[in-house]
Amino acid sequence: MQQISGKAFIFGNNIDTDQIYPGRYLELVEPEEIAAHCLEGANPDFAKEVSKGDIVVAGKNFGCGSSREHAAIALVHAGVGAVVAESFARIFYRNAINLGLAVLVCPEITSKVNEGDFLEVNLEEGMVYNKTSGESIQGEKLSEYIMDILSSGGIKPLFRKMTAQMEDAK
């Protein structure tokens, strides 16, 4: 996978999907429209300030709450390069991986990064490099299956291959 790097936006613990993507926008389906409300409940300016590749850094249980995939879609289309959190809620974690959004569990991350620090994330190594402070922070490596999905750009390309094979076999 290509290198992920950008500046850090810091969030707290238990950032739920209503803060990542408020329920009142759930009827939107266009990714660009969805992205415009990304993290609005936690930081109303986020969608305006984020640039491609930037990294969301959060505390525990990021993405808890509803199963809405809009949360992950909003982050992907807002240009977020990766989410690095102390822990993730399960459904969000699955959704992110399925959509090809890099997610890394890194128990110490919030104590080692300040708002605006420039970070580099290496998924193979499970590492975060804080270029501003010079510190290297070890996170949890992803399983092979998950790396497979991420490096295919999400589960859709993988499944497309599968359904095409099924068709061929007919």
Partner: peptide
């Protein structure tokens, strides 16, 4: 519970 993409894969497989 799962998200939309997971569900779409279930609908297929």
């Amino acid at each position: 519970g799962v998200g939309a993409t997971d569900m779409a894969t279930i609908m297929i497989s």
